[in-house]
């Protein structure tokens, strides 16, 4: 995932709190008119595809098949029918409403479970000294790069039969255990990165706070609840948003670990792409429904999110 580098200590020296005035003048020469025009072009280029999807999703099947979406601005031909259609399972091959619910049911625990466990571990790595701490921490850091493909099959078997190297050790999940295996898979795969990011932040909290708490008689439990948890909220929030986007947008884990009635919306979209290349109008409506929630989360919490990231980045 991409958050690692934002919170990476390496970016720290490059982020001074304020920029000197004189620099602006130097920069003025750099950002010439051509640069501004180029930037504008890139920004438009980056926005057009999404706009195309949005417009297409409101167009009639005939219009979609015969003319480009940009003609809708002059010719009209817009309809809400596509959105009605995608929520009607007899008209599309998938049940988008169900997919949205499944996505939510997968994503919210998928974002919160790893955070809770990672907070505990990150606290231990940051504030409880023990031998080999650095090495174990680096090991966990390295684990985040392990491709999902590398653990997929044994993980499936662990969940379904509790088997490790052919021996049944853990109690298996039942045949009808709902979302359990997807939650667990998301939790396990998110842990290394989440621990790493939270550790960076928690370790940067001022030592004085901890000393004072200890003098007041607080144990690790109290320090964790009363000091670390509230102070780490910006980091927790930004990582939660990242994890939310990550889980919501995931395809592979859902394909492998969910059963057919638990398909999140990404899987349903892939199914629609697979079967109805011709039904572009329905596909774009469904795709727009699927991106609107993460987009809103992202837009609504963007400022908070960036602040959390920079706060994490300025301390290592």
């Amino acid at each position: 995932m991409t958050a690692s580098t934002v919170l990476d200590p390496n970016t720290r020296p490059n982020l001074p709190p304020e920029k000197p005035r004189t620099l602006d003048r130097v920069r003025e020469k750099l950002s010439s008119k051509t640069a501004t025009i180029a930037a504008l072009l890139i920004a438009i280029l980056w926005t057009l595809p999404t706009l195309g999807l949005l417009v297409s999703s409101f167009r009639t099947p005939d219009a979609v098949a015969t003319s480009g979406w940009w003609t809708a601005f002059t010719d009209g031909g817009l309809t809400l029918d596509n959105y009605e259609a995608i929520f009607d399972p007899t008209r599309v091959y998938v049940n988008i409403g169900e997919g949205l619910l499944n996505s939510l049911a997968i994503t919210i625990p998928g974002a919160i479970l790893p955070l809770g466990l990672a907070l505990l571990a990150a606290y231990a790595f940051a504030w409880i000294p023990f031998r080999g701490r650095n090495w174990i921490f680096i090991g966990i850091f390295a684990l985040q790069i392990v491709p999902i493909q590398m653990v997929m099959v044994p993980l499936l078997r662990l969940f379904s039969s509790g088997e490790i190297f052919g021996t049944v050790v853990v109690r298996p999940l039942g045949g009808d255990s709902g979302f359990a295996s997807i939650w667990l898979a998301h939790t396990i795969l998110a842990l290394p990165l989440t621990i790493f990011l939270l550790h960076n932040f928690i370790a940067s909290l001022p030592n004085d706070l901890f000393e004072a708490a200890r003098i007041d008689g607080a144990g690790h439990g109290q320090i964790f609840l009363r000091i670390v948890l509230p102070l780490a909220m910006p980091a927790i929030a930004s990582i939660a948003i990242f994890q939310f986007l990550w889980v919501w947008n995931d395809l592979l884990i859902a394909l492998v670990f969910s059963s057919s009635d638990q398909n999140p919306i990404t899987v349903m979209l892939t199914n629609m792409v697979g079967t109805q290349g011709q039904n572009t109008f329905l596909l774009s409506a469904a795709a727009f429904i699927s991106i609107i929630i993460p987009l809103l989360v992202f837009l609504g919490l963007q400022r908070y999110f960036v602040r959390g990231l920079l706060a994490g980045a300025t301390k290592g």
């Binding site: 980056w46 595809p49 947008n249 395809l251 989360v297």
Partner: peptide, 18 residues
């Protein structure tokens, strides 16, 4: 330019197929 980051690869693929 940052916005597409919130869009899933699947969603982006559909956008670009168009």
């Amino acid at each position: 330019v940052f916005l597409p980051m919130a869009i899933s690869f699947v969603g982006a693929s559909i956008i670009w197929r168009l």
